[in-house]
Design a protein around this nucleic acid. Structure first.
Lengths: 238, 238
DNA sequence: TAATTTAACTTGTATATACAAGATGTTTTT
DNA sequence: AAAAACATCTTGTATATACAAGTTAAATTA
């Protein structure tokens, strides 16, 4: 016997439409089928369809216009996802490379971890990895990540170099970032960081610690990062 | 004849409950009246009440628990609201003071403004002001703010020293921040900033530029800030 | 007493329906 | 030809109802 048998209709509508939007079958500015059309397609009533559409609107996939329809929105960059941008316009993704300094390993949480952990989290242990990101072969950002050690099949063997952690979590485990908090400092690089980022110790860098909550309440993402913002900057949306 | 005559029932329920939560009549962890109780109070049906409750849940005022009820959430610090926190625990608000260097004035947008403006925004002009924030009488953060010049009665004369801009906008004009983006750099202070923050020009500081969208699509908030994070740090939630 | 069952609450999902109100193109009137 | 009216789309608000499923405490049973 399988665990989840009933899939609720409104959830199916959400998933279907999301997937069509993400596949690009509905592009930005397009109108989704009208509520009544969707009612016919799914053999249901407007209340159910509207439940799905309002969820999609809330998640930023569409905006709804009275008398007009459901308009597909700009694809979200993703809540809390930091992007690195060049000050000179048009730094394409191809110039961004990543090297994994520490592959994901299961371990205990560090002593005196920078965020307070709840009991369940503490018992579960964590998965740790660290990455160094380059723009045009210049090291720009060093990041250490701890995530709660819940069962994520094959996570350790996934390629964290080319794809963002967030995309992996979403595509493979349906985990999305819901909210978070971050603390920001400007500091001078210490020996370690100055070596990694190939800068002088008098060079100002951004230090950021962040905690991200996901739609899986068991799983939180913690990261501590150091960024040389001389030629680039950190950007995020919320 | 007044303009808005029909107030929709579900909106009234939202406003009523919001107000009770904000006044503290329902505190964090409390249960709101059940859906059926609310149905009786407002002489309506569950569909309407649930429309209101799901909006409140979406805005973070409550979380809903199947079989249990609507639980009042931790009051949100507010989307995109930066807070200054001391590295030493427990920097109370009383130690935070603000001085207004430039009182709000209406003016044209600066040339080459750091974010691109749309036409309507550009035509409207802006309200500009700048503030310097102190912790324990030490200057820590300098902020320049531009907001779109829409009609905000008496805004210029409001006291920006003791209350946050966000609180003023919410309480007096029902304007809330919906989303935003920010860019972050670590830099060395220039002459101006080093004088304002009373630091050496070799001191690393955080420079941040942000654009915030509000529930009034005519009004955006732009700010550019410089922060000495030696004894404190910048924190925000999203 | 301790474990189990039941009852009574809660929210979740769903159907069926009605009318209001915004958007838009067509038809009629001026 | 321009303006007004209309028809027909769309989403928005609302009522009324039914049963499923999670939670909790009381009642029953062992």
């Amino acid at each position: 016997m399988s665990k989840k048998e009933v899939v609720h209709l409104y959830k199916k509508v959400i998933e279907d439409l999301k997937s069509l939007i993400e596949k690009g079958e509905y592009k930005k500015g397009d109108l989704l089928p009208s509520e009544n059309d969707l009612c016919k397609s799914y053999d249901t009533t407007r209340v159910t369809i509207r439940q799905a559409l309002s969820a999609l609107a809330n998640q930023g996939y569409i905006t709804r216009k009275h008398g007009k329809g459901s308009i597909v929105s700009e694809p979200k960059t993703g809540l809390g996802i930091l992007s690195l941008s060049g000050v000179t316009a048009g730094v394409g993704d191809q110039k961004l490379t990543t090297s994994i300094l520490q592959k994901p390993i299961k371990r205990e949480w560090p002593d005196n971890f920078f965020y307070k952990l709840d009991e369940r989290e503490s018992d579960a242990g964590c998965i740790f990895f660290s990455r160094l990101r380059f723009i045009n072969s210049v090291p720009v950002l060093y990041e250490e990540t701890h995530i709660t050690n819940i069962d994520l099949p094959h996570f350790s063997s996934r390629n964290l170099e080319n794809r963002s952690l967030f995309k992996i979590l979403k595509d493979n485990y349906k985990i999305e970032v819901k909210e978070g908090e971050q603390k920001i400092w400007a500091i001078h690089a210490d020996k370690n960081i100055s070596a990694l980022l190939n800068i002088k110790t008098t060079h100002p860098i951004v230090h950021m610690k962040r905690r991200l909550q996901t739609n899986n309440k068991e799983l939180r993402i913690y990261s501590s990062l150091y960024c040389n913002t001389e030629e680039n900057f950190l950007q995020d949306s919320f």
